[in-house]
Design a protein around this nucleic acid. Structure first.
Lengths: 197, 197
DNA sequence: AATCAAGTGGACATTGTGTCCGTTTCTGAC
DNA sequence: GTCAGAAACGGACACAATGTCCACTTGATT
């Protein structure tokens, strides 16, 4: 039997009890480390030590620190994704695209404020685009552009997502900007691209 | 005498002949390496080997590969900076701010197309903001926003520069977008924020 | 309670970093 | 020209982190 799989349903076997326990330990320890020091300096070894598991155990599941950060992020981001799809306007469906984009921006600012350091820990660069979450944001923004009848939405989507890069956001915060001002600036951007009516 | 300096003018002593020779060798070798493989994989050791200099020599001038990439970039960027300050409109002074911003975007797309891989080699993340060049772009965009009487220009500046991150640009290129389409999208962004008159 | 795949953990080889310091090469003075 | 001191050089070294490997343990299944 290859990889203990239910051959009928095709579902993977459930996670073993000790594995689940360790997964939790790892994530908890990693969250602590990422929050404490500069996330980019966190090492696989440290996480293993902090979680009280062996090196090999850690590598079994996560190839590098970035994917651990990503795993943590996914948890946080899922909630926002839900609200985008089925929440109240203007975040959810119902409001005009420009408004929705601005609301999305505001929500993302909230996320970045809380978890920006984590995104940074995900060795942002290329990694970010690999994340499932990025694909989701991309699809969302693109849909809004299409709804707003903007020309060549494909070319604008990544452009409009760029200011949400953690480096950019944290940079702005360091410059002394408040989340509110940043969100306001993004709202103006949204209205500039997707004018009302 | 501390660091062989002209005490009257305060100018640093001229570079020694062997030093200059090695500097050139290093930059040439590094440019080759960065262009060939993934710039993020290039190592200090490799550069030293390729340049035919010792490890210590390399470290004397550059603390890491990122600053070597930055040194190469600075050279390329200086030309554009010149044209922004004193060139013909719409890039240089004279055109309305929206136009100038769009022209700036177009020029940057050109730069990214040629040297995007290098920017990537500069370990983009935080490093980028440390570069003198970034400060320059920032000042330029900010001035345009002020000229256009946009509210809270400080909050918008980094936001508008974000789409010019090398990761974003290269990502778009990988998606199949042409430089032209990307520049056009950026132009629309510029006009959205700085509408004509 | 027996079986065995899945999971564990730490030792190991490897690779890159950054520093240190004895040696070589320049430059300006005489 | 040659001499002296400063600056630059380069490779050896100590260290840190990576990722792999495999003998051992644990948990689910019968």
């Amino acid at each position: 039997m290859r990889r203990r799989t239910d051959l009928l349903s095709g579902k993977p076997a459930p996670e073993r009890a000790d594995a689940a326990r360790n997964r939790a330990k790892v994530l908890r320890a990693a969250a602590g480390l990422f929050a404490t020091r500069d996330p980019r300096g966190v090492t696989m070894d440290e996480i293993a030590k902090a979680a009280g598991v062996g090196r090999g155990t850690l590598y079994r599941r996560y190839p590098d620190t970035g994917s651990i950060a990503l795993a943590l992020l996914d948890e946080y981001e899922r909630d926002l994704q839900e609200r985008l799809l089925r929440g109240e306007p203007p975040l959810g469906p119902g409001a005009p695209p420009g408004r929705r984009l601005a609301a999305f921006y505001a929500a993302m600012v909230g996320l970045l404020e809380k978890h920006g350091h984590l995104v940074l820990g995900a060795e942002a660069g290329r990694m970010r685009y690999a994340s499932g979450a990025y694909g989701f944001w991309h699809a969302h923004v693109r849909a809004l552009l299409v709804a707003g009848a903007v020309p060549d939405p494909d070319a604008l989507t990544d452009t409009l997502l760029a200011p949400l890069a953690a480096e950019v956001y944290l940079r702005q915060r360091e410059r002394g900007l408040t989340p509110g001002r940043i969100a306001a600036a993004l709202a103006r951007l949204a209205e500039g691209v997707l004018p009302p009516e």
